[in-house]
């Protein structure tokens, strides 16, 4: 077990330093790259918070679809070759659901402001409220 602060909190501290201390002192290209760096750290923050649980869920869905165990990478490679060979398709129960869930998780980490992601998650929330 590692000591505190947790990795997640250290990353937040560095991002806040860039945004609040360093960026106001920078201009032009350096300021732009500092903004990009802060955004990259925000991706790391979200990944540290979201990925551990979602990786387990993704592996469970893949095991269900493929019928065997493996590392997350092995399972994804196996799914790719089955899609490639036509052995799994959108007609296969669970594939569309799995791909949507996996992709929405990626976007929750990478680009939660992407318009298509916001639309998709709003639809999910709306459907949930209606049903």
């Amino acid at each position: 077990m590692q000591d505190q602060p947790a990795a997640h909190d250290l990353v937040i501290a560095v991002r806040e330093f860039i945004e609040q201390v360093a960026m106001p002192k920078l201009e032009g290209h350096a300021a732009f790259h500092a903004r990009v760096a802060a955004n990259a750290l925000a991706i790391v923050e979200r990944e540290l918070a979201i990925a551990p649980a979602e990786d387990v869920n993704e592996a469970a869905r893949l095991t269900g679809l493929l019928g065997h165990d493996g590392s997350l990478r092995e399972l994804n490679e196996a799914l790719c070759s089955k899609i490639h060979d036509g052995n799994i398709s959108l007609e296969t129960p669970g594939l569309a659901d799995h791909l949507w869930k996996t992709t929405l998780t990626k976007l929750a980490i990478d680009q939660p402001r992407y318009a298509a992601y916001r639309r998709a998650t709003a639809e999910t929330a709306g459907n949930g409220a209606a049903s």
Binding site: L90, A96, T103, L107, I109, D110, Y114, A116, A120
Partner: peptide, 15 residues
């Protein structure tokens, strides 16, 4: 980390 944007766009087109 923007290739996931194209994944959701592809899913909107294909499924």
């Amino acid at each position: 980390r923007r290739s996931s944007e194209t994944e959701i766009d592809l899913l909107n087109l294909l499924s």
